[in-house]
Every structure is written in structure tokens, then in C-alpha cells.
Amino acid sequence: MAELAGLRVLVVEDEGGVALLIEQMLEDLGCEVAASVATLANAMTAARGETFDFALLDVNLDGEFVFPVAEILKVRQRPFIFSTGYGRIGVPEAFKECVVLSKPFTIEELKEKLQSMLGNG
């Protein structure tokens, strides 16, 4: 997993158990979790100020959509993946070019999407 080793990731996920599973998958792939947040407000703060290589964004954060965070990441030129149970249909047209990972997912699916997003798949 050398292509992912050492990359720092911002995890945005409102379900605690799911966040722990995602963090473990990312660590198993060699990534380092720079920050893990569960609310839109904290995600926006982290997106603006944390140091990370990419982000994994749950689309629905307890009824609030994560798209303002995605806008911040676009401005900062940080790649990201949407993680959602809604599939691509839950992502607005403005983000049609973005990578979408459908929940639930396996570590293999996560690795494939990360490699696709980072351009080394």
C-alpha cells in the first residue's frame, strides 16, 4: 500500500461506530487520520485549518449536508471522496465529477476509490 502510506486524511462521519471502522480501514491502508469530526461546524473548521492530504466526507451529517465543506476543500485544492448511503444520486450536479463511495463499503472498495481520486489507480 505504498501509494497511500503516510497520507493524512480528514474523516467527516457523524456515526461513531462507522467513523471508527473507516479510521481503521484508512490506517490499514497506511494512511494517518489527521482529524475525525462528526458535525458540519467542526468539519468546516477542520477543512479550513487542519493539515491533510485528502478528506473522506459523509454526505449527511445528522440532517445537515456536507457540501459547504466540499466547497472549502475545492478552494484549498484538497481532494475528497463523498461517502454516502444514497449513492451518486445523493450528490448534487455541482459535484458530479467527484468520487463517490457507496455505503456500506469494503476496504478494497475504499482503496480503489482512493487510488482513483489520487490518480494512481
Rank of each mutant, 00 (worst) to 15 (best):
T84K: 07
V12K: 01
E15W: 00
E97Y: 13
I81D: 05
A38V: 08
E93I: 14
F67D: 03
T51N: 14
E97M: 14
E112Q: 13
T45E: 07
S36K: 00
A41Y: 07
T51C: 14
F65Q: 13
D53W: 13
S36R: 00
G87K: 06
G119W: 05
K96F: 14
E13A: 02
L4G: 03
L114Y: 02
M1A: 15
G49N: 10
T84Q: 10
I107Q: 08
D14K: 01
V66E: 05
G119F: 09
I89T: 12
V9N: 01
G6A: 14
P79S: 13
V100Y: 10
K113E: 02
V69W: 00
L10M: 05
L57R: 08
M25Y: 11
T45G: 02
S83R: 06
G85V: 08
E32L: 12
R78Y: 10
D62C: 04
L110K: 05
A5W: 14
E64G: 08
G49D: 09
E64M: 12
L20E: 02
T39M: 10
T51R: 14
I72S: 00
R48W: 04
A5Q: 15
L21C: 11
K103M: 11
F95M: 12
I89Q: 13
L7S: 10
N120H: 14
A55R: 02
A47V: 00
E32P: 11
E50P: 10
E97D: 15
L29G: 08
E15F: 04
L26V: 05
Y86P: 01
A47K: 00
L4C: 07
L26H: 04
F52Y: 11
V12W: 00
G16D: 10
V75K: 03
P92V: 02
G6C: 13
L101A: 08
F95Y: 14
L114M: 09
V33T: 06
I89E: 12
Q115M: 10
N120G: 11
L7M: 13
F54V: 06
I107A: 08
D14I: 04
V75E: 04
L20F: 04
Y86T: 09
V69F: 00
G119Q: 08
G87Q: 07
G63V: 09
E108A: 15
V9Q: 00
Q77K: 15
V75Q: 05
M117E: 06
A35S: 03
V75S: 03
L61A: 02
K74N: 11
T39G: 06
K74A: 09
R8A: 12
I107W: 04
E93T: 15
Q77W: 14
M25I: 06
A2I: 13
E112Y: 11
N60F: 03
G16S: 10
R48H: 09
V18G: 04
P92I: 03
F105D: 03
M25T: 01
L26F: 08
G63L: 12
E93V: 15
A47Y: 00
V12C: 05
V91W: 06
G16H: 11
G30T: 12
P68G: 02
G6K: 12
E108V: 14
A55Y: 01
T51A: 15
G16W: 13
L57E: 07
I89G: 06
V100T: 11
M25W: 05
Q115C: 10
E13T: 03
E109D: 11
I81T: 07
A55E: 01
K111I: 06
P92D: 04
V18M: 10
L20H: 01
A38H: 09
I107G: 07
L118G: 01
V12R: 01
M117Q: 07
A41Q: 11
P79H: 12
